[in-house]
Structure formats: structure tokens, C-alpha cells
Design a protein around this nucleic acid. Sequence first.
DNA 1: GACCGTCTCCCCCGTGCGGGGGAGGAGCCG
DNA 2: CGGCTCCTCCCCCGCACGGGGGAGACGGTC
Lengths: 216, 216
Amino acid sequence: MSVTVLLVDDEPLVRAGLRAVLDAQPDIEVVGEAADGAAVIPLVRKLRPDVVAMDVRMPLLDGIEATKAVLKSIDEPPKILVVTTFENDEYVYRALRAGADGFLLKRARPSEIVHAVRLVAEGETLLFPAAVRSLAAEYGTSSARARLERAALTEREEEVLRRMARGMTNAEIAAEMFVGAETVKSHVSAVLAKLGARDRTQAVIAAYESGFVAPA
Amino acid sequence: MSVTVLLVDDEPLVRAGLRAVLDAQPDIEVVGEAADGAAVIPLVRKLRPDVVAMDVRMPLLDGIEATKAVLKSIDEPPKILVVTTFENDEYVYRALRAGADGFLLKRARPSEIVHAVRLVAEGETLLFPAAVRSLAAEYGTSSARARLERAALTEREEEVLRRMARGMTNAEIAAEMFVGAETVKSHVSAVLAKLGARDRTQAVIAAYESGFVAPA
DNA sequence: GACCGTCTCCCCCGTGCGGGGGAGGAGCCG
DNA sequence: CGGCTCCTCCCCCGCACGGGGGAGACGGTC
């Protein structure tokens, strides 16, 4: 059973890139495109996609408002994957608060993009845990809260991420945590997967950008 | 040949911490302590330390004045490592203008502290370039200026660092900057050396911690 | 003219890193 | 009880990374 996707981005290049990546998968089908959030509602009604991959920054109606609109006006709303360039997190968080199911970095590798689409289609969330926690706290009870918590890092993973954000190597982390190097590798891999990071540097960036660790 | 260090900090706890960290190294020896900048000159004359680790904020004579005094009144002055709690401390900048050789954050890891002491002892500078540039610009000519500029990143190095802080690999940076991968490697190595970073992750951390790049 | 810093590119080389698997034990919960 | 997550550790493997050199070209400065 194939996953159907609607692309919403004002840049044709990005849409083309996403389409190329996603259509290359046998189990994923891009069923439509839109250049702005304003066009999303009718397209969702018509196409009934499983997932909407939506840019946060768009000229007429941005991803935040479009997300709200979709969730409010559609009975069984599609999963919403917010697409971002990483620098403008404020928008992403507001979109997540608005009910989006995850976020995706534009510079993510193809395999990660595919992975993200499959995950949200399955009902998983792709959110960074530090944001998750504050969101969950301020959002109180709701389905959103449950979704958010599923994406959170475990205790050990958070401990490892903090040490990664202090510039420590796996070996140093292992020594400080009194575990084997292989164990640290496992945690690091888990952290990278959950954060959608390609390497430890991107994970540390995510930690700073999300406020999980704060400078000075 | 051991590196001798004089600790100057009004908080006994900080002195004890630094002493513990530094004395644990076979090649570093803490030869004295002072609780205020006012006591520095005679101690430096007497002990002839290679490095003075000096707090910027002290009751009687602060790190800025103490730095000036040491440089002015001692023939072959020790290297001065300014110790601070805050990254963007106006006092630190003024101390660096006064001729200090580097700064050290109190929350740095032991290994980083040790590293910092060794580096300044060798005549290197530990300054973050963003601060360095404005300092060099407003300070004009002086021996301090020469030292500071040695630590400043070049244009290309800054461009590379910005891209590193966006999570890009060397190959991606090379493509975006229209240069060869080897060139990027050269710039990255220069950045790491100047920042005293061990790897790109530490460089990105330094970029965030210094305000060279800002989260969200 | 000689000098120096910057930018560009090249070589070799070791290794830390990350992906892809798996596996066993502890604890929780329906 | 079985099933689940989490933590722990193990294998193999490819590769990007970073250190160590060097070198040519350009543009300034002395």
C-alpha cells in the first residue's frame, strides 16, 4: 500500500527535488504539488494525500497557517511534515504547535527524506525533544502531547547529546559515563536518527538551534 | 620542561578547581595563588610564572588593570590567560585589549583548560576571531594588535566556518564555494588551529558560544 | 626586488565516525 | 506469561575527517 504525498513549496526547484527523491521509491507516490499554502485545502480535499510536505515560509499563506487550516477543515487530515532550512526554527515550532507531525530539513539526505515521509505516514513523529518537552508542557493534555513524547530522546540519549554538545569524542563520553565505546555509538546513532541529523556536528547544531543547550 | 602557572582569582573555590585540574598534569605546575590583582606584581616578580590565569572580576584590582600593570612593569612578562564566567563579558574584551593572550571560560572542560594553558604558554593566542576583529580595528597599532590578528580568521575561513555551522560536509562546502575539496580541507584545518578546536564539532560549538553564529 | 599572507590545490596516512546488522538482560505492562 | 522499551555490547565495513607535509599564484608591504 503506497504512501501518497502532496508537495507544498513556493520554490519549484525544491518541489522537483522532493518529487525526484520520493517518486524514486516504489512505495511512495507524489500525487500533487502546490506553490503556496493557500492552495492546500482544496488539493487535500481532492487528492486525499497521506502526507503533506509543506514549506514553512511561503508568500501568501505560510506553513503555520496552512497547517492550522488543514487540521481544522479536513475530517481525517493528512500527516503534515514541515519542511525547513533550519535557520528559522521559530516558524517550525509554531507549525509544530499548530499540529504538524514532524519537520524535515531541506538539506537532509534523500534516504532521510524518504525515511521521514514513511515515519509520519505511519503515525510517528519527527520532532526534536527539547522543543517537544516545552511544547508538551505548555500544550497540556492532547493527542499532540502523546505524539510529541514518542519522539523524545531517552535519558541516556540526552546525556550523550549533552556531551556531544561539549565537543567530546565517543571515547571520552564512554569514559565519563562508565560504559563501553560501543554503547556510546549506539546512543549516538539513536540520537542522530531521532534528530534527523547526518553526523554529530548536525546533532550539536540541532541542540543549539532548539535550545536544548544554550550558548553562554 | 614544565609550564608554571600563577592563579589569580578572588574565589577560593575557583582557585582550588584550577589547581586540581592543572596540577594533575605532569607538565604543568601551579606555583602560586593570589586572591586579587593587587598582589600579582610582586608574585610574578618572585615566582616568574610562564602563565598567569587571571579572573577579570576582582574586588581591589580587576583583571584589566592587573594585566596592564604586569605587562608594563615586568621585563619578560608571563602569558596572561583571562578567566571569566561569561562569554560576552565586556571586561574580557577590555582585558584582551590591555594585552592578555587569551581567555578561558570557567565552565570549560578540564581538558580544554589544560589545553588553553599549554597553548598560551607556547605563545599561541586563544581568542575568538569575531571579538578579535573589532578589537584589532578599534585598537590600532600595538603588539596586542599583532597578536590578535594572528588569531583572526580570514574571509574564506569565516565563510567556511559559517558553512560548517550549517552542518555541511567538506564536499558540500567545496561545491557551494566553487573550489576544490582540498582547498576546503586547508581552510578547515586553519579554522580548527585558530580556534583551538579538535574537530569540526568543537569549531561549531565555539561559533555558537562566541556568538559568531546565533541560534534561531 | 624580496618578503609575506592568502588562496588554491596536491600527496600520504591513520582513525574516528557512522551505517548495518545482531544479541542478551532488566524492567514495565497488559 | 508474552511483548515492549531501554541499555548494554558485539561484529563488519566504508569513508569523511584531520594531521603532516608541500607548492604555485596573486596581491600587498617594506
